Simulated assay, not measured.
Amino acid sequence: MRLQLAQVDARHPAARTGAPPALRALDLQVADGEHVAVIGPSGAGKTTLLQVLACALPPEAGDYRLGDQSPWRLSTRELHRLRGRLFLAPQVPPLPPRQRVVTAVLAGRLPAMGLLASLRSLFYPADIPAAYEALVRFDLDDKLFERVDRLSGGERQRVGLARALVSPAQLWLVDEPLSSLDPTRARQALATLIESAHERQVTLVTSLHQVDAALAHFPRIVGLRDGQIAFDLPAHEVTRKRLEKLYERHEDELGGEAAPATVAEPVPVPVVMHCR
């Protein structure tokens, strides 16, 4: 699914009155089937960007086109149908604590389902094998019938990602998918997500706090700062110098060993990953 933002301003729903927009005059294009990582310091506007792309937040100015459509010019019914082709995974998955994992995973299909089918699926999971196969990919198959409130934070985050694998969506928007995962699980989860996106030929846009993971797994990196794009480059062109400028006054979020200032080479991928 092709995306195009033109001079978009957007304000985070929780922003205080009078606060500047989280996104300012932002231009971005993503081709159908492309995989993009969005990086930048806290408060850069990464989550707001994903909410705009997911048609969950209307721009205050500018234009957003999804494929050949302008979502906010559609009727309510048409917008609902369009949202059924999108999958948004927030950093903290909204998983009801008493719900079984199988039901939580199959909820990835709800945006594309009618009301009656959605209600029926809450009590009678319609495709248990599909949920099981999705959980296998994230090494969670033994949790199929477990209750969500008995999972660890990292397991809940992986259940949230497993929803993408059962969703019929053509666009995956994933916000900080590694925040609750240890380094080993983080590498496994990200590799699974990207491999599945390739298999399904879906467009994938992910915000990442872990710069090393973004550089290692994504061919295109968008650096976001203060609501604007600082750079939009192939991963091999993202140098240490560019990253230091992007994370200026936020060096603790960048991590890794600093490269010499006079060397403009691609950033070496460090072994250590920082999860919050």
Results as ranks from 00 to 15, higher is better:
L171H: 01
A214M: 10
T184V: 14
P168A: 10
R200D: 10
A169L: 06
K143I: 02
R150V: 04
L135I: 11
S180R: 12
V136P: 00
F231R: 05
D141S: 15
A169T: 01
E176D: 11
L171E: 04
Q170L: 13
H209I: 11
P183D: 09
E146V: 08
L224V: 10
L151D: 02
I221C: 08
Q157A: 12
G223M: 08
E199P: 00
P183G: 13
D226C: 12
T206R: 03
D182S: 07
A189R: 08
H217W: 13
G160Q: 00
A216R: 14
R158A: 04
Q228L: 07
D175K: 07
V159M: 07
L161G: 00
V159T: 02
A214W: 09
V174H: 02
F231K: 07
Q157K: 07
I194F: 02
R185L: 12
S196A: 15
R242C: 03
V238K: 03
L151F: 05
T184H: 15
R147P: 00
E133M: 08
R242Y: 05
F231T: 05
Q228V: 11
V211N: 05
Q201F: 06
T192M: 06
A169Y: 00
Q157S: 06
R187V: 11
V136T: 12
R225Q: 13
S207R: 04
R150T: 12
G223S: 09
L144R: 04
P177C: 08
R156P: 02
F138C: 05
A191V: 11
S207P: 04
D212E: 14
S207E: 05
R147Y: 06
E133L: 11
P177T: 01
V222Y: 01
L233S: 02
A213T: 03
A230W: 10
H217E: 13
E237K: 12
T184W: 11
E199G: 11
D212Y: 03
V238W: 01
R187E: 15
D226G: 12
L204I: 05
A134E: 12
Q188Y: 09
D141N: 10
D149E: 10
V202E: 07
H209Q: 13
L224Q: 06
R147T: 12
E146W: 14
D226V: 07
L171Y: 00
A134D: 10
A230F: 13
A186K: 00
F145S: 06
L151I: 02
H217I: 02
A191L: 13
A164L: 09
K143H: 13
R156E: 12
E195I: 04
L178Q: 08
A216L: 11
E199N: 10
A230S: 12
L215Q: 12
